[in-house]
Each structure stands twice: as structure tokens, then as C-alpha cells.
């Protein structure tokens, strides 16, 4: 893949430190994440992958007493700057979580939720957004006759695709995906993977995964974290074929994690 020829970075993380409950979880991460590519974050459990993601859309703010320092530039806006408008940041940076978390409302309202709170009132526009997003994630054929049914009635795999569609509805620039296929059956997981591949030219996707084969399948760029430190990052092909750091090599060989 011609994936990681020099692409303008969308996100620049500089010297990011996170301290939770007096423990330093991220110990000075600096990394660039290319625009409109899929970047996989890999590393053993507890190394801080989710924490890194949660800094990018500031969901880390929900953790009481979290101390976050450094810079997370998205374009030229620092997500960590205290004055930033969180609602707008989270519109630009969509997030899909590990277990599907549809909202307690209809399929339609789930997807329209984001646009509505960000000020979209026009029902024609909302209709169009909902059908476009459902089509993008391949859910339209399955649900277009029951858009007003509760989202809770969908299967887990469908719910996760709904959550992806819901994030897309806000027209974000960045999508944060934290092990989003880990609760799904293999077929639904494949669906999600191929949908991400299909849309990656329009979105900067950051994808946390434990499954190395999955990272190989979809990532253009790889970040390897270990115990809160960035060990190595670079084009997927390079990392997977010739890792520079012995720890990366060991991880890829399945020695730990």
C-alpha cells in the first residue's frame, strides 16, 4: 500500500503526560498521526492506549483528578488548551467505544442526536444525514423500514455500526476507535473493518486493537505503546516487517501481552 508516503499530519501529540491517581499513565508521548489514514495503536493491556485516545477528545476530563499536560494539536488547535470549546472538539473528533452504547431512543434519533445538539434543525437535512450515514456503514438495507424502532432492538453488531454511523453524522475529521470490534462476532467485525477501509480517505482514524492480524489488515500507520511510553511509531509496513526496537519485536512475536 502506498499508505504512508509523506502525508500532512492531522494530529501532533507533544510531550503528553497523564497522571491518574498519582500514577503516571502516559510518560511523555510525542507522536504524529497522519491525516486520512488508519493509525493503529497497539501494545499490551494497561499500557495507556485508551488513555491516549481519551486525551484527544478530552473524555479524560470525566476522570476526577486526572492531570494532563503537553499538547495535542488537531490541525492547529490544541485540544488540551483550557479555553477550547469541548462540544466543538468532540464534534470534530468522534469516538466509538468498545461495547456498543446506543442511546435510549430510536435508530433515527440516535444518528440525528449529534447534528441536533450541534444546531441542525432542518428535518430534510436530518433525514438525508441519517440515510447517508446508515448507507456508509452498510446498515441502511437492514433498518430503513424501522428507523423509528428502538436502537436497543438491534443486534450487538448492528448497534456498533449504528454507533459508527452516529459518529459520522457529526461530520468529524477524526474517528477514535477503541477496540470497537472486540465485543462483536467475526462477521460483524469484518463489516466494521471494511467500512473503515472504505471511508479512510475522508477521516483520520485512530484504531486501538489487541489483534495484531487486524492491525496488519487495516493499518497504514502503527504506534506501539509500552508501559505508558511510546516505543516506536511509523508506517505499518515498516513496523511489522522490521521493527527497530526489541520490545516491539517481542510484542509482535507474541512474547508478551
Amino acid at each position: 500500500m502506498d499508505a504512508t508516503e509523506s502525508v500532512a499530519p492531522e494530529i501532533r501529540v507533544r510531550d503528553l503526560h497523564v497522571i491518574l491517581e498519582k500514577r503516571e499513565i502516559l510518560k511523555g508521548i510525542s507522536v504524529e498521526i497522519p491525516k486520512n489514514r488508519i493509525t493503529a495503536i497497539i501494545g499490551p493491556s494497561g499500557c495507556g492506549k485508551s488513555t491516549l485516545l481519551r486525551c484527544i477528545n478530552r473524555m479524560i476530563d470525566l476522570v476526577e483528578g486526572a492531570s494532563v499536560t503537553g499538547e495535542v494539536l488537531i490541525g492547529n488547535v490544541d485540544a488540551l488548551s483550557p479555553g477550547i470549546e469541548l462540544t466543538e472538539l468532540r464534534r470534530r473528533v468522534g469516538m466509538i467505544s468498545q461495547t456498543p452504547n446506543p442511546l435510549p431512543m430510536s435508530i433515527f434519533d440516535n444518528i440525528a442526536f449529534g447534528p441536533r445538539i450541534h444546531g441542525e434543525r432542518d428535518s430534510k437535512t436530518l433525514d438525508a444525514t441519517v440515510s447517508r450515514c446508515l448507507k456508509t456503514v452498510g446498515l441502511w438495507n437492514e433498518v430503513h423500514e424501522r428507523l423509528y424502532d428502538p436502537a436497543a432492538k438491534l443486534s450487538i453488531g448492528q448497534q456498533q455500526r449504528l454507533c459508527l454511523a452516529r459518529a459520522l453524522a457529526m461530520e468529524p475529521e477524526v474517528l477514535l476507535c477503541d477496540e470497537i470490534t472486540s465485543a462483536l462476532d467475526p462477521i460483524s467485525a469484518k463489516h466494521i473493518e471494511s467500512e473503515l477501509l472504505a471511508i479512510k480517505n475522508e477521516y483520520t482514524i485512530i484504531f486501538v486493537t489487541h489483534i495484531l492480524r487486524q492491525a496488519r489488515r487495516i493499518a497504514d500507520h502503527v504506534i506501539f505503546l509500552y508501559l505508558g511510553e511510546l516505543v516506536e511509531s511509523g508506517p505499518a509496513a515498516e513496523i511489522f516487517s522490521s521493527p527497530k526496537d526489541p520490545r516491539t519485536k517481542e510484542y509482535l512475536e507474541g512474547v508478551f501481552g
Binding site: 470525566l62 466543538e88 468532540r90 464534534r91 449529534g114 457529526m170
Partner: peptide, 19 residues
């Protein structure tokens, strides 16, 4: 996790609690 989903979509506390 529902509140989290709502915040992650950019909702404020008020919007989260209301909707």
C-alpha cells in the same frame, strides 16, 4: 456509559441530562 456516549458526541451536561 450512556452519559459517556452523550458527552462523546459533544453534548453538554444539560443536554445529556435532558435528552
Amino acid at each position: 456509559k450512556l452519559k459517556e456516549a452523550s458527552f462523546a458526541l459533544g453534548a453538554t451536561r444539560l443536554e445529556t441530562v435532558l435528552y
